[in-house]
């Protein structure tokens, strides 16, 4: 009889376990998280700051503005506090009050605090040493070359699905070399972001997986010359429909950005929007608040 009781107990225990364990993971939910975005550019006036909140998945037409009382924003830069006021409610843009003529200094601590109701967000850091492009050298290929125009690469063995989604066309590879003065002052390791961005849009787009139109790297890993000039080399492509087509003259924006590793992590994680969310340096919000030094030039490129 005792055995039957034990058996019955074990069955009952199993049923209880089954019911408990059977609960699947939680369903997705939304908490109205704050989105804060501010870029302090060294040597420039205090920036505007965007404070919004995340939007529902079904809403894509505009950002999701904060309703009710505007955000309370305080920027403390090198020990001096600056308050911000709402200037564009639709876009959630705030501008500094009473900060005319104030420029962002380099090598100074800063912190930003945002309060919206009971939600608080905070970020801090140190402004970097200014960066300045010293020279840009451009070398255009004499003739176009055949290239794979790779839209996507999707290989799924489980699905017996192999599709490369490619087509071939022609490109003019353009080599660009940028030089700037090395940072010798920052306490923390500076990071550099480079961008080669044609201002003119071309007839077809290409995936620049096998090119190097931008990069993010620790500054000390780049080449340095005797004149303390650091150099980065990149390549971008200009597509043309036919092999015989001449090189399209266009305007190129060459940009150089110096910041810290927080920005490097954030910027690197922005490159795959469908695969991931960018890393944030904020507590209590998503987005990014950081100090950087940006130098940018526009160059007309012809053969």
């Amino acid at each position: 009889m005792k055995n039957y009781t034990t058996y019955l107990f074990s069955v009952l225990l199993s049923v209880v376990m089954l019911a408990w364990i059977g609960c699947d993971a939680v369903q997705p939910g939304d908490e109205g998280t704050l989105v804060v975005e501010a870029y302090l550019d060294v040597g420039k006036p205090l920036p505007t700051i965007r404070v919004t909140q995340v939007a529902p998945l079904t809403q894509r037409s505009s950002t999701n503005q904060i309703t009710g009382t505007p955000a309370s924003i305080v920027l403390i830069l090198d020990g001096e506090a600056f308050s911000y006021t709402l200037v564009d409610a639709e876009q959630g843009v705030y501008a500094p009050a009473f900060a005319d003529g104030v420029l962002v200094p380099f090598g100074k601590p800063y912190s930003l605090s945002v309060e919206v109701g009971d939600k608080k967000a905070h970020a801090d850091g140190i402004t970097p040493f200014p960066v300045s492009i010293q020279s840009v050298n451009i070398k255009v290929a004499e003739t176009p070359v055949e290239a794979v125009l790779l839209d996507s690469l999707d290989i799924g063995l489980d699905s017996l699905n192999i599709s490369l989604n490619t087509r071939t066309g022609y490109i003019y590879p353009v080599e660009v070399s940028i030089s700037w003065l090395a940072d010798q002052y920052s306490a923390e390791t500076p990071w550099i972001e480079t961008k080669l961005k044609p201002v003119t849009s071309f007839s077809s787009s290409i995936i620049d997986f096998f090119l190097l139109p931008s990069d993010i790297f620790p500054e000390e890993s780049s080449k340095v010359g005797d004149d303390r000039l650091r150099t980065w080399n990149g390549v971008y492509a200009v597509p043309v429909p036919q092999l015989s087509d001449p090189f399209p003259t266009h305007e190129l924006q060459v940009a150089l950005l110096r910041s810290n590793d927080s920005y490097a992590k954030h910027a690197s994680s922005r490159l795959d929007p469908s695969g991931r969310e960018p890393l944030t340096n904020l507590t209590g919000a998503v987005g990014f608040v950081g100090a950087m030094s940006i130098d940018s030039v526009r160059i007309e490129v012809n053969q």
């Binding site: 909140q53 995340v54 529902p56 987005g287």
Partner: peptide, 22 residues
């Protein structure tokens, strides 16, 4: 994802949509 938001590029100002995955 539970929601989405937009961020702009500090150099070019281009805006990009991202999903929020808390």
């Amino acid at each position: 994802p539970v929601s989405r938001y937009q961020l702009s590029d500090p150099v070019t100002g281009e805006k990009t949509w991202f999903f929020h995955n808390p």
